[in-house]
Design a protein around this nucleic acid. Sequence first.
DNA 1: TTGTACGCGTTATCAA
DNA 2: TTGATAACGCGTACAA
Lengths: 342, 342
Amino acid sequence: MIKPRSRRGGGRPTIADVARKAGVGAITVSRALREPERVSEDLRRQIQVAVDELGYVPDPNARALASARADVFGVLVPSLTNNVFAEVVRGIYDSLSDGPFRVQLGNTHYSGLEEERLLQVFGPQRPAALIVAGINQTPTARKLLETAGCPVVQVMETGPDPVDMLVGFSHLDGGRTATEHLIEAGYRRIGFIGARMDPRSQRRLAGYRAAMEAAGLFDARLVTTTPVPSSVTLGRELFRDALAKAPTLDGVFCNNDDIALGVLFECHRAAIAVPRTIGIVGFNDLDMMQSAFPSITSIRTYRYEIGRRSVAMALAAIAGKRPEQRVVDLGFELIRRESTAR
Amino acid sequence: MIKPRSRRGGGRPTIADVARKAGVGAITVSRALREPERVSEDLRRQIQVAVDELGYVPDPNARALASARADVFGVLVPSLTNNVFAEVVRGIYDSLSDGPFRVQLGNTHYSGLEEERLLQVFGPQRPAALIVAGINQTPTARKLLETAGCPVVQVMETGPDPVDMLVGFSHLDGGRTATEHLIEAGYRRIGFIGARMDPRSQRRLAGYRAAMEAAGLFDARLVTTTPVPSSVTLGRELFRDALAKAPTLDGVFCNNDDIALGVLFECHRAAIAVPRTIGIVGFNDLDMMQSAFPSITSIRTYRYEIGRRSVAMALAAIAGKRPEQRVVDLGFELIRRESTAR
DNA sequence: TTGTACGCGTTATCAA
DNA sequence: TTGATAACGCGTACAA
């Protein structure tokens, strides 16, 4: 005696079971599920009944194997806990939760090599689209993206030469705008305080420098940076360093809001008046900036929207409709608050 | 003329190509890759050479289809941006990045129904393990977990009746400890301020209540909660509400650190002395608690470690070694700081 | 609009 | 220790 088809699979119904029950061919069931409009009204209903009764759910692995394409969005970000990228990722998930697509998330830890490695892991899965943070891929990573054979969206920045599509904003302009605001508010010895110093931080620094030089205020001793990951506590420490190097400091543009909050706390602790003695500007405009005391001026960025847009663009490309703009600049906004109002 | 094997696949080498090149059977290549110790030294080397020369990478979809098991960890969390879960997720990713396992992350948005839906999406993928946040699954979700046919780890809480394995800590004890600390510090009209009020927040509230009742201090007017998502700004607002309801308030145990920070800022703004007039305790001990001015007392929790442990337990179960303890309590620690030092 | 035949790349089974 | 054969469940190509 031989038991047929009992080897594995736990007896879950297959497309063949549905087809038999509905009295149609398997391929018709397949079509009814993926392109309902190409199946007659009648059969579609019969098939739906059979599907419901059997509790049939397509096997994504079999589907991927047969079609050489998985319903997966590969997403690569440098950090899972940095609120900035968490918001982007949230936007991506929210945009994808309705449809058939899953998300495959990778954490590059701000490393180009890890990015390459993850791309090599994602490739064999034949993802439907790839979304990656930043524009500074290694040559190898860039080649992997170019040959991925699916839409690619780089996010969080703008740049001249996207692999495929791009949605973000100019960190250089953001840094310049923040610095110009401090200058206009009357600050002169304006420091830059930055942690991590990934490519985006570097460009914000470049924007700071451009503004300071244009005003004839640049002084290398005003710049305090570290490759160490950013945190509120680190902001306090860096601010102390900055003050030690440049005692006449009267303002700071911070790499991000965590640093800015650390600076504010250190000012409180050292009884330094904000904004009178020191002006503070952050970057990203996290919720807490508006509630801090004094509230902190910041550059508002649209991370969640960047996530949503990146998915919309990829989806359009998958549907064959390449969007007319392959590069989308979502901009930023300077939010003036008490920390620079003197 | 018929072109054989040219239909799709982009010409990537398959296991058959490797087998031919190495002069062995396909199945031997498969074994050499997955269980090297079951293949002779000689063949193993030959196969490795062929793999390298061809640049062969196994197709995960074909592998999943044939083995009826995907090298995927399904992970379900209620939020992607809440730092608490982001840390857990980071721990999971870091623990899995070396091995063959991918991560499939789902955002339940604090909804039992979404959790069910995601579990139904994950099921057909035949994940190697499932990690879910919390212990309050709907009956349907719980059944899906029980019949998933893979190790299941519930995280972030302890509880008496795990689906399979469990790693977390007691939110009730955490809430009680925080409140008892305020009582011991001499505060009497101690409020509870909570947002979101998910099951874990509810248990922290229960801990607060237990401590207050034990001391004969409980008063319903001291409790201020909202289902609205937590934020620093919301913390400010809720604190104002709390003060309006209970003007003699002299301390607050906050649901989490964001709320606590909001309370602190509101105290600054209203010139309420901390810790003299109001004592503040947070929950989770985010980095900024130690740097705030004054620094804020909080309950330190081990989110990253919870993520790592959950993977370790799942991995052990996959390897057939069910860990001796199916329930792991990682505890918490009260970190006393200036905000309650009067 | 529907169906037939076959292949996708891998692993389980079982025999050698 | 190794290999031949047969699935795994589905989609593509092509014909009807």
